[in-house]
Each structure stands twice: as structure tokens, then as C-alpha cells.
Simulated scan of single mutants.
Amino acid sequence: MSTTTTRRAAGSSPEQRKSPGRLTVLASVGGQNLSLIGALAVVLALFGVLNDNYLTLNNMQVIAEAATITGLLAVVQTVVIICGGLDISVGSQAGVASVVSAMAFTTTGANPYAGMAAAVGVGVLIGILNGVIIVYGRVNPTIATLAGLAAYKGLAQLISDGRAQGYVLNNDVFVFLGRGKIAGLPVMVWILILTAVAVHLLLKYTDIGRNIYAIGGNDTAARLAGININKYLIAVYALIGTVAAVAGILLTARTGSGQPTSGSEGLELKAITAAALGGCALRGGKGGIGGTLLAVALLGALENGLTVQGINSFWQNVAQGALLVIAVVIQQRRNGERPIGLPT
């Protein structure tokens, strides 16, 4: 080997000295996702040691079913964050859809399809309303959807008189959605998988997805490139409303009645936490569905583990808040952003 070759080898970076196989794995999975996989493995192993019933197939299905509604909302939260926005009202939207689906089911003579159609229709209208307020009202997405969080929660309580509405467990369609299985997996989980795959393909392999990343990365450059940002923002919020309605329908199917707040309260925090943990940059332009789903699994496994150990449920909120802060701190460090109030 020549002297020049020896010097090049000695002076190569750690990344260059990694084996091709390792580089391929890192590139395909991603460092963020590998960290989440590691954290998930630690949580599963820890609670598996503490409780013999934790790693049973039955409990894994319980975790999956419980995480489905959060997962659906986290998937669309990922899209809006990539686009440079945020939606804090997704939990309240799901609550409205849950109530509407049950009430429409009851008033149409126990027609499940009428109930679902009514819920989806309301979800689309709410999503479009959010988008219009943000785009044409020139309201910051955080403020607009924070207002929506309160308004839609109040709407769900008004139309339901603050009580659970209807009873759907005497209907085969709702029972199938809430408790049925296909190929051994709960139907709810299949709905999450299909939704996540569809959104992933949209983001990664279509011009629409590339434009969404472009808007979140640099909206000025996207506008100069001819992208109609207003149209995209309204469409993204309409998508959120649609999927939130599906989540509300599943909430009705799972609990047996329309729930104005119970079951939907706090979902917005879980969805945002999952998206942030999954690698979404809260300033937009970065993120993916795979990381979000891993974060949903991590949150579900942690929440279930705390429950089976009999730990006070209030600690679950503490854990979620801590994880959100940790996720944002990691993002700040990776992006090299200067902390507010500290010298460069």
C-alpha cells in the first residue's frame, strides 16, 4: 500500500470507516428510528421483567388497540407539522365525530353507514373551517386550533348535553370495527396500518408529498416555485378532519356510545408528542410516518406498563409531558439552534 493511500485511510472520518452494511442499515432505518426501537425494546423488557403478563399476546393486542386512535391522529399530525402547521384540536374533533356518529346512527333507525357518513362529513367541514381561519383569517395555526380545541369540545358537549349518546354494540358493523379481527389482528389496527401506509406513500412518492415538504421547509421558496400554499394548507387540515372523524367513529365502536370528551380528551398532546418523538421538526419540513408509528408504539407500551404496575394514571401525563420536552430538546441540539436567552 502506498504512503498516500495509508494517509487517506488513517485520515478518513468515522462515518467513512463504517462498514457498507452498517451504513445501509443506518440510511434505510434512520438514527432517530433506531433510537426509538432501542427505547421501545428497553420499555418492553423492563415491564416484561416486572410483570409476567405484560409480554403476553393478549396484552400486546390491548396495547395495539389502545394506541390505534392516538396513532391515527399522530399520522395526520405528522403531515400538518411537516407542512409547517400544527393542530391542537384533533382530540376535540374526534369527540365531535364520536357523538355525531352515535346520534346519527340512532336517529336514522340504527343505520351504521349513515352514522359514519355524518361523522366524516362533520370532520371534513371542521377541517376546512380550521384551514380557512388559518389561511384567510391570517391566524397562527397554534392559536386557531387552540381556539378550536375549546370550541369543538364545547360543541360536542352541547349537542350531547354532556352525556354519552346512543348505544352501538347491538350493531354488527360497529362491533366488527371495535372488536373484530382480520388475520389475527384487530380491525382497528388494520385501519391504522392502511391509513399510515397511504399517507406514507403520499408523502414520499407523489408531487403532493414533495410540495408539502417544500412548504414546511421554506414557504417563500415554495411560493416562488408556483406552489399554491393556501390550497395545500386547507387540504391538509381537511385531511386532519377526515381522519379525526374516523378516529371518533372507532372511539364510538370501542366504547359502545358517542363520547363527547371521555376517551378523546388529551389525544392532541399524545399526537403531538408522538410526531415530535418520531422526528418531526416542529418548524416544519422534516419528519416521516415510520418514526411517528414507532413513537406511538413507545407511548402505548409505556402507558400500558404504568397501568399494569398500578402506578397512578396522573404519572402518565407527567411522562408524556417529559417525553415531549425531551424530543424538542433533542431536535434543538441536532439542528444547532441557539436556546432562547442563552449566549451563542
Rank of each mutant, 00 (worst) to 15 (best):
Q157S: 08
L129N: 01
Q309G: 05
K153I: 00
E265A: 14
Q16I: 02
I82L: 06
T273Q: 02
R7Q: 13
A275V: 01
R163P: 00
I215P: 07
V90T: 03
V329G: 02
G285I: 09
L72D: 08
G178K: 08
G148A: 08
L57A: 14
A164G: 15
A225P: 00
G279R: 04
V96D: 05
R333K: 15
A104N: 07
S101K: 14
W190I: 04
G290M: 11
T195E: 09
A144E: 01
N317H: 09
G266E: 07
E65Q: 15
L125P: 05
F174W: 07
G91R: 10
T5M: 10
S89R: 01
P186S: 10
A9M: 12
S89N: 03
A327I: 02
V99E: 05
R138H: 14
N317T: 10
N59S: 10
G123L: 06
L202M: 14
A64K: 12
N171P: 02
T242A: 15
G131H: 02
G166A: 07
I134L: 11
Y136N: 11
N170W: 00
Q16P: 00
L201A: 14
I133W: 05
M116V: 15
A94K: 05
V25S: 00
N335G: 00
A66V: 03
Y237V: 08
L269W: 06
G287C: 01
L158W: 14
V328Q: 03
Q77T: 15
Y167Q: 12
A118S: 13
G217S: 12
H200G: 00
G216L: 10
L169A: 01
A9Y: 04
V135S: 13
A244V: 04
S264M: 02
W190D: 01
A64P: 09
G180Q: 12
A39V: 03
V328T: 09
V197M: 08
A196V: 09
P339C: 09
V328P: 04
A319Q: 09
T261A: 15
V135F: 07
G266L: 11
A10M: 10
S257G: 09
V96N: 06
N170Q: 13
L73Y: 03
F105M: 08
T70P: 12
N230R: 14
I37C: 09
G178V: 12
S28G: 01
P339T: 12
L192S: 10
L224G: 02
R17S: 13
T307D: 12
G290N: 13
L44D: 02
A67N: 09
G178H: 06
Q16M: 10
L233K: 14
V76Q: 05
